[in-house]
């Protein structure tokens, strides 16, 4: 370990662009807290999305110890992490953010993720759990409205939406605004209210769809175990504690900002909330549940996590 007085600087690669609220709220907070508590002995040097490593290589870079810290979405580490699919959210599983938080921290899912990441020399700490929600240009009032939609999506949710009968296609983020504006797609999801707001999506799509497509730990902070081990013990403790707190602080704060942002969008841009009709919701839940089992097939851990999840949802009376 480094001597107690030495100053260490960590390079931190974000997967958020600078304008994203999480860049300042999550990374900014972490930097401030850690630098304060270590009396400036550990400094975080932040880099915006893509500056050093592309999002999908950040896990590798941290795993190799080239980067000391990074932020990712679990889906960027799917080739290594068999639990990533569950971590990045099964569609229509949780109905409230607190449930996902409880599942992560009190039911032991977070520890399972941490154990699997440890195999690659990575210390895993979920930044927050939060919903992913759609915005659409025309309100969804019936099942037909839903199935006639063209939606910009990605990853597991794209599979889900396609399976459910909508026409989901992947369009890169850089072309999302134009695509929605000109009507190439009628809907999209980019985080929830804050994401849509930061991408300017409310300018061209006025309906914010509830409930969430999923609620999950979609943002993760990863630390190189090698870098962590090099710190003196008191500093290691400070870092881990800061990360543990981070989950609760950010999950709560994010909820608050979601509501504030949505209120602003409603007041300033005439956005309306489009709650899916009950029959549409029921059909979506049914499609979703049919897809969950796929994720359990990836490994023993994944099977166990899925079992835990089902039991948990059962106890809540959702299954």
């Amino acid at each position: 370990p480094a001597s107690a007085q030495e100053t260490v600087t960590w390079k931190v690669q974000s997967h958020w662009p600078g304008s994203s609220s999480s860049y300042t709220d999550s990374l900014g907070r972490l930097k401030r807290v850690i630098e304060e508590r270590t009396d400036g002995r550990l400094k975080l040097q932040l880099f915006e999305a893509g500056a050093l490593f592309k999002a999908k290589d950040t896990f590798d870079a941290v795993s190799r110890g080239i980067l000391e810290m990074g932020t990712i979405s679990p889906s960027y580490a799917q080739d290594k992490m068999t639990l990533a699919g569950i971590a990045s959210g099964l569609p229509f599983a949780f109905r409230h953010v607190w449930e996902a938080a409880y599942f992560h921290q009190n039911m032991g899912f977070e520890q399972m993720l941490r154990d699997e990441a440890a195999k690659y020399g990575v210390y895993w700490a979920t930044d927050k759990v939060y919903p992913t929600e759609m915005v659409v240009k025309k309100p969804i009032k019936s099942w037909d409205d839903f199935t006639s939609l063209k939606i910009r999506s990605s990853g597991a949710l794209q599979t889900f939406l396609t399976e459910a009968g909508a026409a989901a296609s992947y369009i890169p983020g850089s072309e999302l605004y134009s695509a929605l504006d000109s009507g190439i797609v009628d809907g999209a999801h980019w985080g929830a209210a804050q994401g849509a707001y930061s991408m300017g999506l409310y300018e061209v799509a006025k309906y914010h769809v509830k409930p969430a497509l999923n609620i999950a730990g979609t943002d993760v902070i990863i630390v190189s175990q090698k870098a962590l081990d090099k710190l003196p013990e008191d500093m290691q403790k400070i870092v881990k504690q800061a990360l543990d707190e981070q989950f609760w602080v950010r999950t709560n704060e994010y909820q608050y900002k979601e509501r504030v942002t949505l209120a602003k969008a409603i007041a300033e841009q005439g956005v309306q909330i489009n709650t899916l009709p009950d029959d549409v919701q029921a059909k979506l839940v049914k499609t979703a549940q049919g897809m969950w089992d796929e994720e359990g097939k990836r490994s023993e851990e994944a099977k166990k996590a899925l079992g835990m999840l089902k039991e948990f949802l059962g106890n809540l009376g959702y299954l």
Partner: peptide, 19 residues
């Protein structure tokens, strides 16, 4: 030396730029 991984990673990223 290890940082050369960044060069390969940037190239991989550029190859994946749809635009």
């Amino acid at each position: 030396f290890d940082s050369f991984f960044m060069v390969a990673s940037q190239i991989w990223g550029t190859m994946g730029s749809f635009t």
